[in-house]
Design a protein around this nucleic acid. Sequence first.
RNA 1: GCUCCGAUAGUGUAGCACGGCCAAUCAUGCAGGACUCUCACUCCUGCGACUGGGGUUCAAAUCCCCAUCGGAGCACCA
Length: 462
Amino acid sequence: MRFAPNPNGPPTLGSTRGIVVNSEYVKKYGGRFIIRFDDTDPVTKRPMLEAYDWYLEDCKWLGAEPDEVVMASDRLPIYYEYAEKLIKAGHAYVCTCTQEEFKQLKDAKQACPHRDTLPEEHLHEWKRMLAGEYEERTVVLRIKTDIKHKDPALRDWGAFRVVRTPHPRPQVGDKYVVWPLLDFEGAIEDHLLGMTHIIRGKDLMDSERRQKYVYDYLGWTYPRTSHWGRVKMHEFGKFSTSGLREAIEAGEYSGWDDPRLPTLRALRRRGIRPEALRKFFIDMGVGETDVSLSLDNLYAENRKLIDADANRYFFVWDPVRLEISGVEPIIARPALHPSVDRGSREIQVGSSVLVCGQDIKDTKPGDLFRLKELYNIRITGEGTAEFAGHDIETIKQGGGRIIHWAPMEGIPVRVLTPEGEVTGIGEAGIATEVDNVVQFERFGYVRIDSANGEVIAYFTHK
RNA sequence: GCUCCGAUAGUGUAGCACGGCCAAUCAUGCAGGACUCUCACUCCUGCGACUGGGGUUCAAAUCCCCAUCGGAGCACCA
């Protein structure tokens, strides 16, 4: 099995499906898992140098370490060799039609003038291509299929073209001017790497039919294939790697791990566990139907994984000061976790606390509240309240609400969510949880990213 | 325009190759309840689907045909 990305950006949710499903089959049925970088386009989908490592990192994180890593850009001579073989056998030809000319002929089911000249001539032209005697867009090596094939997508497809832009990898640079196209490169590699099974997107279904011509010419057996439909997440609109890159460069996003992005690095930073992603994509299956679903399914898996580990803390957004009369300073000791015994935190409280504005917005004097794990209060006016006993039963029977709070000495917290920023005050203990996923009670789970004076948290999910 | 593929609850998904065990699985979602000093977790209960029409058959989610809807390819992108 293999996963064959073009590293022109970081792995996204879409890549994750390929990584997870392919590696899962290998885990289940044995075999080898290969990552092959299909980095054969130095221009329109130009690879990003950093992205090679990002893929390997993220695969490892997802529990999908490859048995082998191959870069297509290292193996051009191999592709040349097979191209030459096909030319000699009369199965490929050098075509100097313009793109428009060829399209017209193809749509009319007509062969171009170059198609049926002698293999020796094509071999000669091919050598000239390799020697750099052709400019970009003036020549292409085509695989002969059936120019009258009823499906226009299969008629004599292009296998190599001239690209003069150097490849971003310094090891490759400007070594080559003739580059293979995906159908050719993939066809050769899948055979050479010993692929028995391929699972990939159904946009590549025609690709398979094209590649089979090459397999027939070379006497190879095509791997067993299956194709999955497109995945669309309700939360993310249409996005393309190049579009994201532009948006990042324009400063619309803070980087590839901006919490609003569907990249794996962003999800990781938000505290999504790799096991949740695996489960999510394995449960999705490999059907050919296009699916459009919500991240809620992923969140549900993740919530089950993190809940037992996530310590609880109070974080007050839209903080409003509440002056409480009739109280002595006290230390609250709420448990770090409601059902797993991990001890408790200590919060020093004086005569006022911060609460969420929305909790006391529409209150009138006399309304009863329980400050969670502290004591009961009764509202006496705008921003003021009075102590109303310690007994929780009063609240349970009296119908007052239990709300959370933060001490006046709390630390500022900034939560980065997919919908934007939420700022507020949290209890000081949050600063000890850097890198951990915690639950801000009545708010949701977050991963504490840093705590230098101000806590930066990435929102995980509710 | 030509070609290919698909269609099961709100959302995913199992079942379809070999028709009966399907009054259709599981998850998520939603609703209600239990527990709880969180609107979290856990547990219980409930809701909800075979796109439509023909055909074959004793029997169709499953096979065939048509229609409708959706997606993809026809690049010197991957």
